[in-house]
Design a protein around this nucleic acid. Structure first.
Lengths: 133, 133
DNA sequence: TGCATACTTGCACTATAATGCAAGTATTAT
DNA sequence: ATAATACTTGCATTATAGTGCAAGTATGCA
């Protein structure tokens, strides 16, 4: 569920932050969906931070999020058509300091831990696990 | 003269403000260059405001600016290649409240006042003229 | 029923960005 | 020289946005 009418600036605002650009870029490049803990293990940022950025991206109309049990899967929205054009731009960006290739590498490794195509585990990265673990 | 190495977020940051998006969109649609007073008369915003936003756009690597006498002409930069992709996205955006069509209409009218393809006059809009006039 | 856990959010704080005024610079015209 | 003018910028103010902690919600499991 995403809102249809969005301020056009909000679309670019969604990409105007390093963390959000990393999230979007990862999803543009892989074309895959991801849950929060997979993103935490890929970007190595705390879950509350990513959760909030995901909300901003969603409110800008770029992301749809679906709850599946305890997990929430996020995927890029492809309409209206200018979004596909936007993603093409994102795909064309340089990766000067190799942030994105690192994110991508960790994400692909993390995908291997899925069972039946779904994440069945929580945050694996020691640094960002919740205390209870 | 524009810097080559720019933070990728800065590119989107440049479009993440209403005034800057109006400037960029106008130049994307027309493909033309424009001096500050032409932009003031097109967007109906004060010159100091536009001047500062132009600086931000320039620093993001999207704009090159050349002084010609008292006038400074601004035009969009086309390289690296992802910028063309970005402009295609801008061109595809909706114009829900018809801000851009209004800007464009005023800009086209303002272009008619050029002599020899160059602006020879200052701000025409009464509201934004400098006091001395 | 109670606990673990995947995710979200209220709050306080800090950092960044936009705005308006007024003064400044650089260039041309007289 | 002096004045006009196209544009820029320092400064103070306000508005917006990002961050981290800690508490909260919702779901599944024992």
């Amino acid at each position: 569920m995403q809102s249809i009418v969005v301020q056009t600036e909000a679309v670019f605002q969604a990409l105007a932050d390093e963390t959000r650009l990393r999230i979007i870029r990862l999803m543009v490049v892989t074309g895959d969906e991801a849950c929060l803990c997979e993103l935490v293990d890929s970007l190595l940022e705390p879950s509350y931070k990513l959760s909030r950025h995901l909300k901003i991206i969603r409110q800008a109309g770029l992301l749809s999020s679906q709850k599946e049990g305890r997990w929430v899967y996020h995927r890029l929205v492809m309409e209206p058509a200018y979004l596909e054009s936007l993603y093409a731009t994102v795909r064309a960006l340089p990766d000067s300091n190799e942030t994105y290739s690192g994110d991508l590498k960790r994400f692909r490794e993390r995908l291997c831990l899925r069972e039946g195509g779904r994440c069945q585990i929580g945050i694996q990265s020691e640094e960002f696990k919740s205390e209870a673990g």
